[in-house]
């Protein structure tokens, strides 16, 4: 439904041929960040746990579970985005992840904690003489929320497994009435 509503005013005629490529680029950008972030953390799970604990938001057992799971989730979602498989689901999950990071960092900032976000490895500890850079971290992650939203609204872009496997719906996504068809047909 969201696709239909958002997309309709934009395309009285046919879609601009560059638009699916924009989605492809968005997928690759988001995927690169996720895979790098996950890859840097996955080698030292205990450190990743500590980075989650550093936010002092979650009980220890939950922080431990998230610390172990987050790196692999980031990598898997990143890979899904690269190949364009379950594109929309991957976009939603990564968007929610980024939002959670924004909330976590903002809350650390508000509480006057002095931590590193631990986004790309490290235990959430600032190096000697280092200052936190919360504003930049929030802006970066919020930008990535927008990138994820774009992918969600216009999936799956070119070079996507979703299209190759016919997972995008009954019609090719860039046919003019494709979305309208999806939106209106009862399809039961």
């Amino acid at each position: 439904m969201l696709t239909y509503e958002k997309a309709a005013p934009d395309r009285p005629r046919t879609e601009h041929p560059a638009l699916p490529w924009v989605t492809t680029v968005a997928r690759l950008v988001l995927a690169a960040v996720l895979i790098v972030a996950g890859g840097l953390k996955i080698g030292a799970p205990a450190l990743s746990v500590q980075a989650v604990k550093a936010y002092q938001l979650l009980p220890d057992s939950l922080a431990t579970a998230i610390g172990y799971g987050l790196p692999i989730v980031e990598i898997v979602i990143g890979v899904l985005l690269v190949v364009g498989l379950l594109t929309r689901v991957a976009a939603v999950v990564s968007g929610l992840l980024m939002l959670a990071f924004v909330v976590g960092i903002a809350s650390a900032w508000a509480r006057g904690l002095r931590i590193d976000c631990g986004c790309f490895g490290g235990g959430g500890e600032l190096g000697a003489g280092e200052d936190p850079n919360y504003l930049w971290e929030i802006l970066r992650d919020f930008g990535l929320v927008i990138v994820a939203a774009w992918i969600f609204i216009r999936p799956p872009g070119r070079l996507a497994m979703d299209s190759a496997l016919g997972l995008t719906g009954p019609r090719e996504p860039y046919q003019p009435e494709g979305d309208i068809f999806q939106g209106e047909e009862p399809d039961a």
């Binding site: 172990y68 799971g69 898997v76 379950l86």
Partner: peptide, 23 residues
């Protein structure tokens, strides 16, 4: 879709288990 979801969940739980073992 179900196949992909199952594979994704299997990889994630495998990775989680491995991380726990490593620590």
């Amino acid at each position: 879709i179900i196949t992909v979801v199952v594979v994704v969940l299997a990889v994630i739980s495998g990775g989680w288990w491995y991380a726990a073992q490593q620590s």
